[in-house]
Each structure stands twice: as structure tokens, then as C-alpha cells.
């Protein structure tokens, strides 16, 4: 279906046939130095980029997404790496693939284009953003993580384990940022480019089900318990409502295959996700 849509798109807009298409992989919460191997896995990245006319036109972002989304080490770093990629490889048509909080950092750039003169240059090259399991409305688990580390002394609650990125993903915090700084959520103006969500709806961690092992069985064990903190439709870290909370729903995992995509599987080569993303380039 995606391939069909893509073909129709190219037929309707022949200018894209002349475009130099590239793809960027934007990781989620955490400070990455080798996101290709540590976050996405080489198998996922290499499978997706085969959909490019020039399979070298890809970049894997490595930034410090422990910071608030607007921080120079977060959105600033992302903008720097995206613009270098665009300029160095003469990219005229960029597809951005984000995972989890990476969707928020990308949405910060799209929603606040005048904060940095690089942002409009990047936005003008973006075809669309494919947001895998985006934490657009935050997650109750970020509230739980923050509150679980609150010291009762005066300034102590700042010293807890939760990073700024985790604090930012508390539900009430994201509600504030969505109402006041970010676009694309219900009742707010749409973003300047499409923001298409892939939603993971469940976690399987049965030791007798081979599908539970894709992306790492032990990761799914922890996600299955934390899913209890969430709605029945969730990927172990995010409610489906959060993943579908900004932009448009591209598809739910169960529309892709019979297997749900847990929060860790939605960044890995699991159940044909890589093929759908490849065919979308």
C-alpha cells in the first residue's frame, strides 16, 4: 500500500523524480555516540536505506537527548547534523525517521522555525517525518520516574535521577508544551510538514513465542510490567493516544502484521517495519 502511494506520488509530482532523496534516523531519549549500532542496529538502518536511489544518502543522528528538547545539545545538535548532511550530500528531499522522544525534538524544530536560522533551511528540505512511537503527549511513566526520585528536602527534587528529557515527557509538561510551543496536536495548527505516526499497541514477552525475542526478549520483560502503568493500548512505555497525539496516524502495528510492536521493537528490524519504511523513501 505504501509503495503504491509512493508511486502515485511520484507520478503526480514528477519533480521528485529529479530529487536527491536522503533519510535521517533520529533516536529517542538518551545521549548517543553510536546510535546506528546501539539504538537502531545496523540491520535496521541498512535495510531501510536500501529504498534510496543512492543508499549512501543516509545519516544516523547522535545527540544528547537527555536535555530539554530545545537545548542546544538536543534540537541544536539535531539541526547541525541534519544541515551538514543536507549540504554535504546535496539532499533536496529528506525523509526523517524518529523514534520516541526524537519525535518531540524534531517537532520542536518544525514548530519553532524562527529560533534558529538553520531550522527553515532544514524544514524546506523535509518531505515528511515518519514518527515511530512518538511520545507526543508524554507518558505516565515519566511522571512515575520523576516522582520516584524526588527528595523531600528543599532543592532535592532537582537532584533525582530523572533527566530533563524525562521530566519534559511528564504528561502535564507535554500538555503545556503542546499548548504553547508545539504544533500538530488536537486543536492546534498543523505542522509545516507531514508528521506520520507508527503506533505500537502491545507488548508480547512470552518465552514460548519466538516473536517476543525480536529486538531482545529481556527488553520486553521489563516493558510488559510497565505496560500495567499504562492504558490497555500501549507499547510498554507510551499509551497509543500519546503515539497518535500529534500529526496523523500512518498505521497501527497490527495493520502491518499480527504482531504488536513494543517500544523497543519499533526501532528494530521486526515484523516488516523496516520494509515499510524502506518502501516509503
Amino acid at each position: 500500500m505504501s509503495r503504491l502511494i509512493g508511486s502515485c506520488f511520484l507520478f503526480l509530482f514528477p519533480a521528485l523524480l529529479l530529487a536527491n532523496t536522503g533519510v535521517a534516523f533520529v533516536h529517542g531519549t538518551g545521549k548517543q555516540t553510536d546510535a546506528r549500532n546501539d539504538y537502531w542496529t545496523g540491520a535496521m538502518v541498512d535495510s531501510v536505506r536500501q529504498g534510496l536511489s543512492n543508499s549512501s544518502n543516509y545519516t544516523v543522528i547522535n545527540c544528547d537527548f537527555e536535555q530539554f528538547m530545545w537545548d542546544s545539545d538536543a534540537a541544536g545538535c539535531l539541526a547541525g547534523q541534519l544541515l551538514s548532511f543536507i549540504n554535504n550530500r546535496n539532499i533536496t528531499d529528506l525523509v526523517v525517521i524518529t523514534h520516541s522522544n526524537g519525535g518531540n525534538v524534531m517537532r520542536w524544530i518544525l514548530s519553532n522555525p524562527t529560533t534558529d536560522s538553520r531550522f527553515p533551511q532544514i524544514i524546506s528540505k523535509i518531505r515528511w517525518v515518519n514518527a515511530l512511537a512518538a511520545s507526543s503527549l508524554g507518558t505516565p511513566l515519566a511522571d512515575a520516574a520523576t516522582e520516584g526520585n524526588i527528595f523531600e528536602q528543599a532543592v532535592g527534587w532537582l537532584l533525582g535521577y530523572a533527566s530533563d528529557a524525562v521530566k519534559q515527557q511528564q504528561v502535564s509538561w507535554m500538555a503545556y508544551y503542546n499548548s504553547n510551543y508545539l504544533y500538530g496536536t488536537s486543536g492546534r495548527p498543523s505542522l509545516p510538514v507531514g508528521f506520520y505516526n507508527v503506533v505500537g499497541s502491545d507488548v508480547d514477552s512470552s518465552p514460548f513465542d519466538s516473536d517476543s525475542y525480536c529486538g531482545g526478549y529481556t527488553l520486553n520483560v521489563g516493558l510488559e510490567v510497565t505496560q500495567e502503568w499504562l492504558d490497555n493500548c500501549s507499547d510498554g512505555f507510551l499509551n497509543c493516544t500519546s503515539q497518535a497525539g500529534a500529526g496523523s496516524v500512518w498505521f497501527y502495528d497490527t495493520q502491518l502484521s499480527n504482531e504488536p510492536l513494543s517500544h523497543n521493537q519499533s526501532r528494530r528490524k521486526c515484523f516488516g517495519l523496516d520494509v515499510v519504511l524502506r518502501n516509503d523513501l
Binding site: 538518551g30 526520585n149 533525582g160 535521577y161 528529557a165 529481556t218 521489563g222 510488559e224 510490567v225 510497565t226
Partner: peptide, 17 residues
């Protein structure tokens, strides 16, 4: 259901202490 400390760290090392 339960998750030992190591299970949580594997799945949520950036989120839970």
C-alpha cells in the same frame, strides 16, 4: 507480574533509576 531491577534497567535505563 514482576520486574526485577535488572529487567527494568534493560528496558528503561534512560527512564528509571
Amino acid at each position: 507480574q514482576l520486574a526485577a531491577a535488572e529487567d527494568l534497567q534493560r528496558a528503561h535505563k534512560n527512564h528509571f533509576s
